[in-house]
Nucleic acid binder design. Structure first.
Lengths: 273, 273
DNA sequence: TTCTGTGAACACGTTCACAGCG
DNA sequence: CGCTGTGAACGTGTTCACAGAA
């Protein structure tokens, strides 16, 4: 999950619940698949199955969009695809820039689901001069000095940050300053942005840690790691304990003032052959 | 955000709320940074700021772990790092395999936050024979035939799927069959797994779509795309409308029976120099 | 009848506000 | 006094169950 958005105003008149918005892309994907197979209609049960949710939730979700189904029959696939696309704003074209063309940036640039659905990669930007001009996914990488020009010339409002953690806040500031109002952040840092700018975060290591938590529970079903109210040894006791975290990428927050590039760190550049 | 877990049993005795678990890695990162700067104690206010949450939430979260703070003072940084690490199960070593070594798989293999925090990349696996033996992040890629052997020999319980969508379910089935009980899925597909297996999903394009939704709202503040209860034109009307989705990666669910490789699709392989 | 759409009940998560410890 | 820990209030999200359209 991604978090980090500034907190939506309490008065959400006429609005669709966040949880529902987050599921619309799921429905859209399932519907698109049905559409490709020329399936004309689908029941809430079937569609829910394909999207990996339960049917009650799906119906509730759709009820926020309006009454697009037919009782006793189901939903018209094409019509729903259109309605959801429109609701998500995918009927218009969204130019995006990707900053930080390491392996991850390259993966994003090549990602099919990115290029379709109304998202157009307007530019790839990297702080390493050695990357400049190099084609990735058929697009020549541009030097970071061009950032402001690119944003303004293309009317970019969505930026993707795939830089090392240390560069993320600076890149973010420049994006926002240049007019970007939505940011998808892959760097393991908390970004601070002014009011009105949305940030969504995708953190690879956090997801793994959550899995580890549950995995641990499975293993020692009888003996969970228990946090007893009676603390055996007071604070400071296990000082240099088993805790790892050395050479850790995201702990580089201190020297955030440095250069704006520093590629090949936690999210290293594409291997240069 | 990631979804798809089977739904936690209603009786969560002695358990930590999911929402809290999802934030623990955030706190841990902030604490690790403080620890590196040799900060001895931190208040809920400060730590919350560093982690990007509010202090009430943080205190509530910590209250589920036990009473690890000191009133009037704050929390002992080292001690908290240890407690959270232990709670998340990061004091033990988790061997993981990454299946699908395209750009994304390579990015994951190189990712610092992966290698630290107790996660050890036990193997990189790809279905492309051309990748076999090639070193990525210092580890030789192994052919997919070795999958079961690798899992069993290394006691791997966590698998990462970074294959194209079409291969994901098959890879998932093989992982589960071989003994993996936690899966982090980057492929844009809904995976079906037996009871007891956890799946977390990271979907790059879904995050963008959610951003687009909010971005759209900002633009036309006065005129949201409105879903009026009175439908202007009935189902089937905008049949071949503005909806895009052609050449879309995730719509390849039909031919899921094919070979188990198919690299270079939506998540293409590392450019071979 | 079948299946949608939705109020009402419930579960979960967040915030408030303050008691109480150091 | 400062700050944690936590009950209680509140808001959001999910599930239930059924009325009612086709």
């Amino acid at each position: 999950m991604a978090t980090g958005r500034p907190h939506r105003p309490a008065t959400r008149s006429r609005g669709i619940p966040e949880a529902t918005v987050a599921r619309l892309p799921l429905y859209l994907r399932a519907l698109t698949a049905l559409s490709e197979r020329s399936v004309p209609t689908v029941s809430s049960e079937e569609l829910a199955g394909a999207a990996g949710v339960n049917s009650a939730k799906l119906r509730k979700d759709f009820s926020y969009l309006g009454s697009y189904g037919t009782r006793g029959v189901g939903y018209d696939v094409e019509y729903l695809v259109y309605q959801i696309s429109r609701e998500l704003g995918l009927t218009q074209d969204w130019p995006v820039v990707i900053v930080g063309i390491g392996n991850l940036g390259a993966a994003l640039a090549n990602y099919g689901g990115f290029a379709s659905r109304g998202f157009r990669v307007a530019a790839l930007i990297d702080a390493d001069p050695g990357m400049t001009g190099r084609p990735v996914a058929g697009i020549a990488v541009q030097y970071i000095d061009e950032l402001e020009t690119i944003i303004e010339d293309n009317g970019v409002s969505i930026g993707v940050i795939a830089t090392p953690a240390g560069a993320a806040q600076q890149v973010c500031d420049r994006l926002v300053e240049a007019g970007v109002t939505s940011i998808l952040n892959f760097a393991p840092t908390v970004l601070s942005v002014p009011e009105g700018v949305d940030v969504r975060k995708v953190d690879l290591s956090i997801e793994l840690q959550i899995l580890a938590f549950h995995e641990q529970r499975k293993a020692g079903e009888a003996s969970p790691p228990a946090a007893p109210a009676s603390i055996p040894s007071g604070p400071g006791a296990p000082a240099g304990a088993v805790v790892r975290g050395r050479d850790d990428a995201e702990v580089r927050a201190e020297a955030r003032a440095g250069r704006d590039g520093d590629p090949g760190d936690d999210l290293p550049a594409v291997m240069p052959a």
